[in-house]
Computed example of a mutant assay.
Amino acid sequence: MSNADQKTARQTTATAYWTVGPEQGELRCEALPAPGIGEALVRTLYSGISKGTELVVHNARVPDCVAGEMAAPNQEGSFPSPVKFGYLSVGIVEEGPADWAGKTVFCLYPHQNRYIVPVDSLTLVPDGVPARRAVLTGTVETAVNGLWEAGPRLGDRVAVIGAGLVGGMVAKLLSTFPLGRLQLIDVDPAKRAFAETLGVVFSHPDDALPDCDIVIHCSASQEGLERSLQLVGDEGDVIEMSWYADRSVTLPLGEDFHARRLSIRASQVGVVARARRHRRTNADRLRLAVSLLSDPLFEVFLTGSSGFDELPDVVQRLSDGTLDALCHVIEYPVIECPALDAPATADPRC
């Protein structure tokens, strides 16, 4: 039997989450062939919901002009829908090259209970990093890229505006730097306890200290970006890590932006930051990110979990605000999916 025939003979089904319309998601079955040469079959243990970006997709707000650039690495379909989107997945290699078998891995893959990928797209999760915590790898990678873009120096005064998942992650990493001052800024006073857990000084925007060397903006709000321009010092840098999708933002550039020679620079994780692009690959950046997760303090970013079969409802609840979370974890049961020619099953997931 040829390799192609073997793959066809061993096809089973997998189940994945698809966005099928504005504020509509569902679990769908699909064919899953056997892995080919250089590929691995991964059984998912956990995936994380990257709330900001995934809710933009859920609400059909990806602008047409950047639809290609904003596609996830293993996305299927296209924006606005139907599309299989997501990128925080941790699982076990069940089949593949011998040196990968049984390994716990992170992959930039959508929410799916089993999948086939080239082993080059897998990042090994170190022994000191629990599999559940490893779903944060992609967000840590985003924060690392932002800091490579910002380039903080010894003794710098830095402010992070927006104490959500990305802003909190940036502040967590910056807390290990020899800075002169670090503030985590948010309009929600309840975020003070979160900042204290991270070991970072919390401030309301009205009370934040000015004359910063760097302000990193993560609130995805016009007001937050305006405050960033007020807090950064002369000739200072604002690093914009928010994605506004299809929203328009108006800034008071007629005030002191021009006179004080301020800079706003975007950071986006799709490519390695310019300052490291010639010496680091995306794979290098992911390996660094997952290694940092050996610190148990990162557990504070995991704020709740649900079963895979609840995922459509969970995404909608995150969208309408009835569920609050930094990173909500999806847990995957072990499901024995039948071959495609097997009798029909009553389990809708297979």
Results as ranks from 00 to 15, higher is better:
231 L>K: 01
198 L>C: 05
227 R>K: 15
203 S>H: 13
227 R>L: 04
193 A>D: 13
213 D>E: 14
188 D>F: 05
236 G>Y: 10
206 D>A: 15
204 H>R: 12
226 E>V: 15
180 G>D: 09
216 I>L: 15
186 D>M: 02
184 L>Q: 09
239 I>R: 05
245 A>P: 04
218 C>K: 01
208 A>Y: 09
213 D>M: 09
235 E>Y: 09
248 S>A: 15
230 Q>D: 15
204 H>D: 13
225 L>I: 02
194 F>K: 11
189 P>F: 01
185 I>P: 11
220 A>L: 07
187 V>Y: 02
210 P>F: 07
239 I>W: 01
205 P>Y: 08
227 R>N: 12
199 G>T: 00
249 V>F: 01
184 L>P: 00
185 I>H: 07
189 P>N: 09
194 F>Q: 10
220 A>T: 14
238 V>S: 03
224 G>V: 00
195 A>I: 02
237 D>C: 05
227 R>W: 04
225 L>P: 02
207 D>T: 14
236 G>V: 12
214 I>M: 09
200 V>C: 04
236 G>A: 03
196 E>M: 05
249 V>T: 10
183 Q>W: 14
241 M>Y: 05
226 E>D: 11
192 R>S: 12
219 S>R: 07
243 W>E: 04
215 V>F: 06
229 L>E: 06
229 L>F: 15
209 L>V: 10
237 D>F: 08
230 Q>H: 11
248 S>Y: 02
218 C>T: 02
219 S>E: 10
243 W>R: 04
191 K>P: 00
183 Q>F: 12
227 R>Y: 04
248 S>Q: 13
228 S>A: 15
198 L>T: 08
225 L>M: 13
200 V>A: 02
183 Q>K: 07
199 G>H: 00
247 R>C: 02
209 L>H: 14
189 P>T: 13
198 L>S: 05
227 R>V: 15
189 P>Y: 01
180 G>I: 10
229 L>R: 10
194 F>L: 05
186 D>T: 00
233 G>S: 11
184 L>H: 06
236 G>W: 10
213 D>Q: 12
209 L>S: 14
236 G>N: 06
245 A>Q: 08
207 D>N: 13
198 L>H: 01
239 I>Q: 06
205 P>L: 08
197 T>Y: 02
182 L>S: 02
191 K>A: 08
205 P>C: 08
244 Y>F: 15
249 V>I: 15
188 D>T: 11
187 V>N: 04
204 H>M: 14
200 V>Y: 07
192 R>W: 06
181 R>W: 12
247 R>D: 07
206 D>C: 06
181 R>K: 12
223 E>D: 13
227 R>M: 11
248 S>I: 07
